[in-house]
């Protein structure tokens, strides 16, 4: 694949909408189901993924000419693992309470398919700037999806947002239950599919 022809803005929007990691590509589903119980969790894990994605993309784009093709994948893994360790240590030191709420998931970013995929598909063929915007878009897309899920689950399940009482009662405790993540992600995907169908139909009609 040749270097991308898209502008930085297109790359950025691409990650958030067209190729949203969770709703469109259906990658990195574990945290989307597991810890999307509150907006805060979504935001923090989003920040962690954003950090790892941007830094790994930039690192690989920077050193792409020096990587021997046969050790491409190990180098990706090493890069991701390094940045995951860094963000893990930083979060554990500066936001200990929120870090505990996310449990094992921060360390598990290392196994998220989305990051390796972006390195393989994009960063190893493009410039640092393009990779930066691509990584930023992907990270923000992940954050956006996590926060949307967290928003729905926290508001409907607990009646709160970011820990503040909004509704004063709990409309549907079901959404706070762990298993509800599956249903919500399923419904969201169906919704995105539906929007696509309607959009395409409109386009044809015009």
């Amino acid at each position: 694949m040749a270097p991308t022809t898209k502008t930085n803005k297109e790359l950025f929007v691409n990650g958030i909408l067209n190729e949203n990691p969770i709703f469109r590509l259906a990658l990195s589903m574990c945290p989307a189901v597991g810890i999307s119980t509150s907006v805060m969790n979504g935001l923090l894990l989003g920040i962690a993924v954003l950090f790892v994605q941007v830094f790994s993309s930039c690192t690989i784009a920077l050193i792409k000419d020096y990587i021997h093709p046969r050790i491409r994948i190990p180098t990706y893994t090493l890069t991701i693992a390094t940045w995951v360790t860094v963000i893990d240590l930083v979060l554990a030191a500066y936001v200990p309470v929120a870090y505990k709420a996310m449990g094992i998931f921060v360390k598990l970013i290392v196994a998220f398919a989305i990051i390796t995929m972006r390195l393989e598909m994009f960063a190893c063929k493009n410039t640092v700037t393009a990779s930066f915007w691509d990584g930023l878009g992907m990270g923000l897309g992940f954050m956006f999806a996590m926060m949307t899920l967290g928003f729905v689950r926290e508001l409907l399940g607990m009646g709160t947002l970011l820990g503040y009482d909004i509704l004063g009662f709990r409309p549907l405790l079901f959404f706070a239950l762990p298993a509800a993540g599956f249903f919500l992600v399923g419904l969201m995907m169906a919704m995105f599919n539906y929007i696509e169908v309607v959009y395409n139909r409109r386009k044809k009609g015009l």
Partner: peptide
């Protein structure tokens, strides 16, 4: 190549660890 990248990665992690250990 692998040795150099491992060394760089190791020193980055070690550095961050020593900086954050106290704050933690």
């Amino acid at each position: 190549g692998l040795t150099i990248s491992c060394l760089i990665a190791g020193s980055i992690m070690g550095l961050v660890f020593t900086i954050t250990a106290k704050a933690k």
